[in-house]
Design a protein around this nucleic acid. Structure first.
Lengths: 160, 160
DNA sequence: TCTACCTGGTTGACACGTCACTCACATAAC
DNA sequence: GTTATGTGAGTGACGTGTCAACCAGGTAGA
């Protein structure tokens, strides 16, 4: 085999960005997740599901619709719901119009959980991320997110 | 109980930043991890361990030193090494000077794995992140990373 | 020496995510 | 109606990460 042409290794500036990227997310997210667990007994996954359901009419949604909204795989959501159901914060219900379908419903416990957790969570997010950065830095983050979102939206073609 | 004072909810700009933050990292990392798996049969965790060991003298390191360098828990590293050892890319060896200690060593297979994987990985990182962003955006990321690193360095006090 | 503590490292239980597979119901083609 | 195909959802195996408990070997003080 002829040797592959030497790849374009990262410049120093690019390495800085890449290492920052790799480091900062786990760092911040671990702190926020820890807070969430200690303050409210919830994982980030729990919180995400609860907060979406908490904003829906009747605190219920078709499972596949929820998965699509959250951009989770159905499998992932199914596993998550199983764990949440065992803890009594959500409940699955069959849906009359389609024998295959099912809905998730927040239980009263679930409603209480997300209601109690939300203010503490905001505080935590502020403390570990938002309030640390300048408005310019926040805007830069949003901008980068936007660029990447478009890039991947395009890459995934019709799948969206 | 008296109701807690209304928390400072996120402004729209802050929400944009927060959602971007939450979304972009899994998005990009999933792509890069997928590439790594398909191109080289490695997970990101594998790659990280291999690339550190690949740069050390004799392709070996004390396990606790490796954990500290990577900022992994010893437990996490131990689990990871067990899996890697089963696949033959690293090997554990006892160390003579300390009856408790152990070293990890790259096997020949491991050396080959990281050597082959590195150029492909750089290409993937460029494609999914670095080459998509402008130098200004890369710099903004590095800067944000720096701010957060300091913030958490301070928060963790002497633990570093 | 005996004891107490520290340290390096492993282990087990559990939460989480992915993948591939399965199963039941729905729908369209014939 | 029967058959093929699609779709909603769950399951099992496995990789990964955390936490707490454990164990063996070192170290220091009585």
């Amino acid at each position: 085999m002829t040797p592959a042409s030497e790849p374009r290794w990262l410049t120093e500036a690019e390495q800085d960005a890449w290492y920052a990227w790799r480091r900062m997310f786990p760092l911040v997210n671990a702190e926020i997740a820890r807070d969430l667990g200690q303050d409210s007994g919830l994982s980030e996954a729990d919180y995400d599901v609860l907060s979406v359901l908490g904003q829906t009419d009747g605190h219920r949604m078709r499972i596949s619709a929820l998965a699509e909204l959250m951009r989770w795989s159905r499998s992932r959501l199914s596993h998550q719901l199983t764990r949440m159901e065992q803890r009594g914060i959500v409940r699955r219900e069959e849906v009359a119009t389609d024998g295959r379908g099912a809905e998730v419903v927040l239980t009263d416990t679930g409603v209480a959980a997300i209601t109690d957790a939300a203010p503490l969570h905001v505080k935590s997010v502020r403390r570990h991320l938002i309030d640390i950065l300048t408005p310019e830095q926040l805007q830069a983050l949003a901008e980068v997110g936007e660029v990447l979102r478009h890039r991947f939206g395009a890459a995934r073609k019709g799948r969206d």
